[in-house]
Design a protein around this nucleic acid. Sequence first.
DNA 1: CTGATATCATTTGCATACGAATGAATTTGA
DNA 2: TCAAATTCATTCGTATGCAAATGATATCAG
Lengths: 153, 153
Amino acid sequence: MSGEDNLLRLVEADEPDENNYHLQDQVGFILRKAHQRHVSIFATHIDDLTPPQFAALAKLYDIGETSQNQLGTLIAMDAATVKGVIDRLKARGLVELSKHEVDKRRLLVNLTPEGREAIERLIPLARTITGETLAPLTAKEAATFLRLLAKLA
Amino acid sequence: MSGEDNLLRLVEADEPDENNYHLQDQVGFILRKAHQRHVSIFATHIDDLTPPQFAALAKLYDIGETSQNQLGTLIAMDAATVKGVIDRLKARGLVELSKHEVDKRRLLVNLTPEGREAIERLIPLARTITGETLAPLTAKEAATFLRLLAKLA
DNA sequence: CTGATATCATTTGCATACGAATGAATTTGA
DNA sequence: TCAAATTCATTCGTATGCAAATGATATCAG
């Protein structure tokens, strides 16, 4: 093996790159931490509902009755996950289920009066939560961040 | 009730605000979706390890042997979560556990040779995953995004 | 030196999250 | 029209993620 080969191996070797790998610089790791922080802030303001449960109620409040599957698509949850969320909201009387008259496969979900009251009460808190989550940024930075984040999501 | 009262109620009523609330504009919801997308990209490139498992191995590769608790702090997992992650890595022979000689409360975690091989093999893939996650952004946008995201995390 | 505190790890319980398999109902296409 | 493909919902299994309680050990304060 020549000296040039050794030089080449050093330059192209995996080791230097591997030593330079730092988890805290990876977008996935920071994304996970930012999400964790948001969920934590959410819990300090709304302690009787999780973010996914809130999302389900907010979406139903926005669009009205829909199928469980369609709701899942709108709030980015797969069928198995949305079922659990809806089950728990139903157990608490915040949503009610009914069968679709025409398409017998579908399970319709809608807010109960209690669910409507709950989401109307919580939406102002959700605005506070959003504000607190973005608090480390200036208004301009927050706008930029949301724009770029949306491109990634 | 006077006409002025009605006007006042309309302007100050909750309904307009509530109707304006859209889940897809909330930072928490978008953050959750961006995280989901990243995890999905991760899984297409690394199908035998989860992001938290990868994080544990990468951190151990970076800093060497440490206590389970300390590792949890470094990779942003609480004690209960990190235990499960380490248990599964141990079951696969990627990490090994030992007792701290002095402080008998501590459980030391370290990479096995197999774990070291695995993380060295995976780090290049992790770089690809980061790249793919950030692909919707230009290089400049990605830099801005990472800077702002880090301020939030 | 010792009782109060704090730290480390474990366990339990609950709530996402998703892949894969299944069954029922609907839609498609040759 | 009718078999194949698709859609909707459910179930199971596995893996985070966190709060709260517990037990063992270590540290601190008086």
